[in-house]
Amino acid sequence: MSSNTVISAQDLSLTFQTGDGPVHALKDVSLDVGKGDFVSFIGPSGCGKTTFLRCMADLEHPTGGSITVNGVSAEEARRNRAYGYVFQAAGLYPWRTIGGNIRLPLEIMGYDKAEQARRVSEVLELVDLAGFEKKFPWQLSGGMQQRASIARALAFDADILLMDEPFGALDEIVRDHLNEQLLQLWDRTDKTICFVTHSIPEAVYLSTRIVVMSPRPGRITDVIESPLPKERPLDIRETPEFLEIAHRVRDGLRAGHGDEV
């Protein structure tokens, strides 16, 4: 574990007890995420990628192994408000305006009014939603709602961003656009991002490292370092390097899946 490790999991296991016997959502998962990394987690459903992310966020409690975030336990990190979390659905409060939704974590964390206003307009600018502060969520498109939820996660300026298939429910064109914006944002803010997805191009396009996972029991089968430069226009997806990595990811998924594919 090097000095700039932000998230570190050692032999992490999580077993759910169900009516049909125990389900091993995660088994002996070990991974270090360094500062400023963009790590994608990819795998078929049931491979534990979301569960792993929820363990980092202290939303699930591992049954074995250990996990540290910023060098402390996941729970302490949560209490320190060490990360912003973006869910699959925007989950904005319908009774609050866009600005009000972004202000919500700031109110809870006790920022003063002037600071709240400053940060809200700052992150709205960042996700390209300036001018929509007074709108209600249901007056916005799905893509805009998801951008607002990212702004909400950015508002309190945590170093870590945990994203659970944030663009899964959006159409391809909107998704491309948001991917591009997310990369620019990551470049500008130097945050550490953990990103769950089940789209291979999305994972390859965004990440510095791609973690391939497989189910029954949920485990890591491959970790692929991406040689792509930090500057990535959308058409990088046509280059041979890109296709090469995508191919490796697909191979990893197939291997993890055994004979089922």
Binding site: D58, L59, F87, Y93
Partner: peptide
């Protein structure tokens, strides 16, 4: 939404 409140501690 309750998880979200949890992530804000």
């Amino acid at each position: 939404q309750r998880d979200l409140m949890r992530t804000y501690a």
